Simulated assay, not measured.
Amino acid sequence: MTQTRQTFAAGSRLFSPARLGRLDLPNRLVMAPLTRNRAGADGVPGELMATHYAQRATAGLIIAEATTPNAVGQTYPHIPGIHTAAQAAGWQRVTRAVRDAGGRMFLQLQHGGRIGHPDTSGHVPLAPSAVPLPEPLHTSAGLQDPVTPRAMTEEDIRSTIADFARAARNAVAAGFEGVEVHAANGLLLHQFLAPNTNLRTDAWGGSVEGRIRFAVEVVRAVGEAVGPERVGVRISPGVEVNGIEEPDLEELYPALLAALAELEPVYLHVEYADQERPGFAMLRRAWPGTLIANPKLSREEAAADGGAARGERLLAEGADLVALGRAFIANPDFVERARTGAPLNELRPEFLMHVHGAEGYNDYPALVPALV
């Protein structure tokens, strides 16, 4: 175990209440969405996931892991979905457990685009253009080379937008307070934004206006389906993951944020948010609503306090809420540990992804044994 190096005054903003749309949050620490591959092979969440999230219900807000709005959008094996009745029923068990423990949840909606494989989803992946992922990916048959995705037709685009809206309705019916549209990390919406993955010459590509259109239309449809006060959006400007290249950040993201702001989603969630990172201050100035900052932590920061001190600085620099991931993985009661400076559990990274079961998932001890 690693001892935290900082305790916080009673007046720390990290532990002060906040308002998010219609939600009252008891603190400003958000559990970030974290892919853990613990759903069933059919994408149905089970008791493992209900226990996991209920253990972490003291977070101000939980954003549940990336969940697919349709079958073709599945990225990796054992990723949950929200497009079948069984999947929705599984998530309802999760949200009930979290609510009974006093928590609040959004669900992240993620379509993998070119990050997918027929051995996992049963479908050739869809993407803006027929540009394959530049690296192997995990499939139901193990690590494999990627397949070339099929470029989406106009009908594919329209039906996918409708699938996002339907998934949002399913999520709210399953007990989630809202949904987060995933437009980051090289997934489908991000693939439309980036010129190296979007080679289209029609109205869904080419110019910045064309490349932001799909993300904007997804957010519009989801907001119309469940209300904009139930919709968040996650972005990762300049994060070169999954082969994404964004040479026109300074033009792309102001245009995207201006278009999204007109739709009035309840929050913007920025990955790797940092005052030192180029563009963070611009994003804060450009975004009129609630901003959730998800910092990239050094190993030393993560070991010291799980990111609490960095979170405090981000709040001072303009963020409204702070999302942390690995701290909540290893510490079901991270909020209390951060507030008091209690020791943190040591993360076991070998159990993060592409494994199954409770080990490294639900067996991290709390300071006081959990009642779930």
Rank of each mutant, 00 (worst) to 15 (best):
L199V: 12
H83E: 06
L20I: 08
S159I: 05
A9L: 14
T4I: 04
R337K: 11
R5E: 14
V322F: 12
A59Q: 02
G122E: 08
I82R: 03
I235Q: 00
V218Q: 07
L347R: 04
T95S: 13
A174R: 09
G112V: 05
N70K: 06
V226M: 01
A151Q: 04
V241C: 01
G142T: 14
D248A: 11
A86H: 03
S121R: 05
V233Y: 00
V372T: 08
L352V: 10
N294E: 15
P80V: 00
R339W: 08
V72W: 00
S12V: 12
A171S: 14
P265F: 15
P17N: 14
G43V: 00
P149E: 10
V226E: 01
G325Y: 15
A309Q: 15
A97V: 04
P228Y: 00
A57H: 01
S140A: 13
D274M: 06
A316K: 08
P77Q: 02
T340P: 10
G238E: 02
V355P: 12
R220K: 13
E312D: 11
E276F: 05
M353F: 05
G102I: 13
R114A: 05
S121L: 01
G81M: 00
R337T: 07
E229V: 01
G289L: 15
G325L: 13
E180M: 13
A184N: 10
A71H: 06
N37E: 02
A309S: 15
A165T: 08
L48G: 03
M282R: 10
Y267N: 12
A338T: 08
E135W: 04
V266D: 12
E359W: 07
Q110S: 03
V368T: 15
G360E: 07
G357N: 12
A57M: 04
A71C: 02
F334N: 11
A338G: 14
V94K: 01
V147M: 09
Q191G: 07
R169E: 15
Y364N: 01
Q110C: 07
R200D: 11
R220P: 10
S140R: 12
A127N: 09
T120G: 06
A88L: 03
N198G: 13
L260Y: 08
G227C: 04
M152D: 07
L23I: 04
M105K: 08
A316T: 13
F15L: 12
Q74A: 09
R36A: 03
G60I: 05
H354S: 11
T139N: 09
L347T: 01
E264C: 05
A342T: 09
V147W: 13
G103M: 07
V98H: 04
F334W: 14
A293D: 13
L189W: 10
A130N: 09
R38Y: 09
Y53F: 09
I62E: 00
R150D: 07
V216P: 15
A215F: 03
A225M: 00
V368P: 03
R220L: 05
E246W: 06
N27D: 06
L188R: 10
P288C: 11
G360R: 11
L352D: 07
L268H: 10
E264H: 13
G178C: 14
S12D: 15
R284D: 03
A302W: 05
R313F: 04
S12Y: 06
E359A: 15
A370V: 05
A261N: 10
E177L: 06
A194H: 14
R56I: 00
A330M: 07
R299K: 11
R166E: 13
A261Y: 11
A183N: 13
